[in-house]
Design a protein around this nucleic acid. Sequence first.
DNA 1: TGCGCTATGTGCGCGGGCGCACTGACCGAT
DNA 2: ATCGGTCAGTGCGCCCGCGCACATAGCGCA
Lengths: 272, 272
Amino acid sequence: MDHPDPRAATGAPGVATTASWRENLLLAAIPAAERRRLLTHCETVELAFGAQLCEQGERIRHVYFPIGGFISLISALDERSRLEVGLIGIEGMLGVSLLAGVGDAPLRALVQGSGPALRIEAAAFCRALSRSPVLRYTLMRYLYVLMSQLAQMATCTRFHVVEARLARWLLMMRDRARSDEINLTHEFLAYMLGVRRAGVTRAARSLQRRRLIRYSRGKVTILDGAGLVRASCECYAAGAQIYERLLSTGGRRRSARGQHNRHGRNPRSIRA
Amino acid sequence: MDHPDPRAATGAPGVATTASWRENLLLAAIPAAERRRLLTHCETVELAFGAQLCEQGERIRHVYFPIGGFISLISALDERSRLEVGLIGIEGMLGVSLLAGVGDAPLRALVQGSGPALRIEAAAFCRALSRSPVLRYTLMRYLYVLMSQLAQMATCTRFHVVEARLARWLLMMRDRARSDEINLTHEFLAYMLGVRRAGVTRAARSLQRRRLIRYSRGKVTILDGAGLVRASCECYAAGAQIYERLLSTGGRRRSARGQHNRHGRNPRSIRA
DNA sequence: TGCGCTATGTGCGCGGGCGCACTGACCGAT
DNA sequence: ATCGGTCAGTGCGCCCGCGCACATAGCGCA
């Protein structure tokens, strides 16, 4: 109702696909040996747009490492008051609370962009965690990034107007989907931003008039990324920076070795 | 200017006081042997109201375990747009990011209620962490609680009116200060809630008229706690519950043994 | 006793976002 | 070709909180 079929099932576990762990930056940052062990417990699944992977307070059954799709974290006070507080793409994972030894999900998780993900059973994941300090270390850093994002989100939501926040979300989704085309209706955007659909319509129209985006019937295209960055609040740049500083340079104890980003992209170039 | 002298120094390390580790619930939850080792590195300090213990992005020098005072975590986009996103009292600690292997503070930390705290140097704390799985485990659960609070804070700030949020804060501070008298000006409250002082005045006056609180010149007294709970948003109850479920039952690996929440409350009843 | 500072009270006009409700445009299926 | 459904555009009155500015009132100190 509020968003496309929240109960839509996740696609069935797939067999081989072209996707691989390489697509997930967290997995890529784990030392090969650890990763191999982890991957033996993983299966590839297709995340279906709108699927609800878990509900606030419910038990976590699987941990997901997106390798194409992305997931949004939603904090809901009740069905009228809800707000997206985090976004998980190829740079992250769903289920960090297991790291803290907590088996319940703190937030609702909704698939926002369809695509594949690797998943692993919660129990197997916990076993892997308890065996591997490096795994813990790497994922903890991500947990920290998520926390920083949460705090920033709170402030951003409080102080910035819908239009800037919309621009920010579109950019974040572009980064996570790695595509300038995003499938999202105003309705869904309103759900995420915690505002009325009418408010989204107004903001989106304004962005479209300025030729920064184009949209129609649930498909948004980013035309001018640089312009959109300018139209967004500084939180977009800040968020990208936090991530870059803590993770994209390798993730594993780089602080000691000063490694560089193997993927070569400079996340700081938040550019167009 | 915006709040009482942010650069006020923390009181000098004290020697023996009547306060003890027993006053901090996290420390109390750690097995005795571990705690003893940790305490050898601790010193007692007096937190001075308004002191800034660390700034967003700066290096963490000490970890604090309040045993009387309490600390607020503030996310600042710039000096006009800032918002309190967390509150740390005897139930918590300042410096969790070290758990994630990150040496920089994600948020500004301001002393909100004067009182003693135990503190330990960051390096010593990290060493202790790396030696003790139980310590990690216990504190990780707290990290999780903080995260949940952050997410809830974002939603609360977005959807609830100033008066309810004010009531909530007063209650949270009462719990952490364990006193119905709280030293806080409207100015400072406005700083935390991210609203104008005038907004706080109006809300406070309304609460006072309803005989829930009384205040004058920087001192707020809670007259009717139960009434104040009713005037607050459900986030107060929800936050207390999260904490209780995860930490107050002992904190140490109870989940691994399949124990149940000894307090017997149903966590699902988050909506009144 | 009086000064000055800090804390609180209040007014006014503005604007963003809300709730509600209806219209119009486009798409796919029968 | 038509119909039903989803998606987007728009209007209207409302209210909360903002920004600004000024008016009182306690309190400490000289």
